[in-house]
């Protein structure tokens, strides 16, 4: 009886620890090509099925553009800011609609899988070439007050 209690306690402790721990997924977003108005990148997404993995790959691209910046591209600096949790809290409605409401899709010009679905830890993985309408994305962020318009 004592042993069972100990096991249950350990399981709960491990679950609580995992719930508190923040896991930062690797971006795995690499620049391919770009123009003044668009950027094309290769991104790796993970999900329980192909659709979820594809969405994950696309959303990772926006995460990198918003909060990290993309080396070699014209968007080397983050579009929104480096502190993603502060920015996401500040503009909660916008980012909820963008990610959970899948509004990000309106800025994806093309999303072409370049690999098959492979089994990985945590689900299935897919590699996708994603082309983003950068100009429209910037205008949208400006319109909704997430970033300032050019100038003061």
């Amino acid at each position: 009886m004592k042993n069972i209690s100990l096991i249950i306690l350990t399981v709960f402790a491990v679950m609580a620890f995992n719930a508190c721990r923040t896991i930062y997924p690797s971006a795995e977003v690499n620049y391919i090509s770009g123009t003044e108005q668009t950027v094309t990148v290769r991104s790796v997404g993970i999900g329980i099925n192909e659709e979820k993995a594809l969405i994950n790959a696309e959303q990772k691209v926006f995460d990198v553009l918003f909060f990290r910046g993309l080396p070699q591209s014209n968007q080397k600096l983050p579009m929104v800011g480096s502190d993603e949790s502060a920015e996401k809290t500040k503009h909660k409605d916008y980012f909820n609609k963008f990610y959970d409401g899948k509004r990000h899709k309106t800025f994806v010009m093309s999303s072409i899988p370049v690999s098959g679905l492979t089994k990985v830890k945590g689900g299935k993985s897919i590699t996708v070439d994603v082309k983003i309408n950068l100009n429209a994305l910037r205008s949208d962020l400006e319109t909704f007050g997430v970033i300032r318009k050019f100038g003061y």
Partner: peptide, 18 residues
Amino acid sequence: ESCIDDFLNVMQAKFTDI
């Protein structure tokens, strides 16, 4: 075309500082 966006992004970062 190869540099104008990057150029304007850096300018905007300086404007934000201002």
